[in-house]
Computed example of a mutant assay.
Amino acid sequence: MRYNPIARFLRIPRRLRMIYYIHWNRLKFSFCGIKFEEEMNVYNKIYVNVHPTAQVSIGHNFTFSSGAAFNPLSRNIRGCIFAEAKSNIIIGDNVGISSATLWAKESVQIGNNVKIGSDCILLDTDAHNLDYIIRRDSSRDTFTAKSTPIIIEDDVLIGTRCIILKGVTIGARSVIGSGSIVTKSIPADCIAAGNPCKVIKVISE
């Protein structure tokens, strides 16, 4: 590839893009009815779809990097916040997320001081009905899919490319290894990993 000095000159510096998107996304979140504190910093383009009857609230010092390699592990994967009718997404204080998808049909709750790695998916619904007859009717399919709340307690660390499925609670201070698929709840103070995710070590004080 040939070096193009003009293209390099016209490229917007990353720092300026960060400042632009911080302000743009605060405006965007406000229009979507999301409640957040002034310290919220969301970098780059992010997909947001919040139903008028849904509730999304975000605590202090929230940071969400969305693609553009703000987190190198995210590459150019954009993050997503998707809240269906009458659902809620509650995010605590000092939470950091990189290019993750948060999809709530019922409820996704994230505690304080939680870190969620790049390209993770938190999905509290099956997304589709498990009955193939109902799946044939697209007007009934997703609306009848089962859902159960997800709860991520304080100080949890979730590694890159994990999938957290419906009905899961991850206990405080636990660590979920990269690439894990969490189908059942994980207790507090442990390290868990795998598909399906299982406890591999208890964290001792």
Rank of each mutant, 00 (worst) to 15 (best):
I77Q: 10
P72L: 08
S57H: 05
T160F: 07
D131M: 04
L73M: 09
H128A: 04
N94H: 14
N49P: 05
S98A: 15
A145P: 02
G79N: 00
L130N: 11
R75W: 11
N71I: 08
Q109A: 12
S107G: 14
E84R: 14
I121D: 14
A68W: 09
I91T: 01
A69F: 01
D124Y: 01
S87P: 03
D141R: 00
S138K: 11
I150V: 13
I134E: 07
A83R: 00
H128L: 03
V95F: 01
V56I: 04
C120G: 15
V108D: 03
E106A: 14
R75D: 12
I121K: 14
I97D: 00
R135M: 11
A69V: 07
Y132R: 06
D155W: 08
H60S: 06
H60V: 02
T125R: 02
N129W: 03
D155K: 13
T142Y: 04
D154E: 02
I81G: 02
D154P: 01
E106L: 08
I151W: 08
Q109R: 14
C80P: 05
I152K: 06
I89G: 02
S66Q: 08
I90L: 11
E106R: 11
F64R: 06
N112W: 06
T160W: 07
I58Y: 03
I46A: 01
T101I: 13
I121Y: 14
N61K: 04
E84L: 11
A68R: 07
L122W: 07
D124I: 00
G67D: 03
Y47C: 07
T125Y: 00
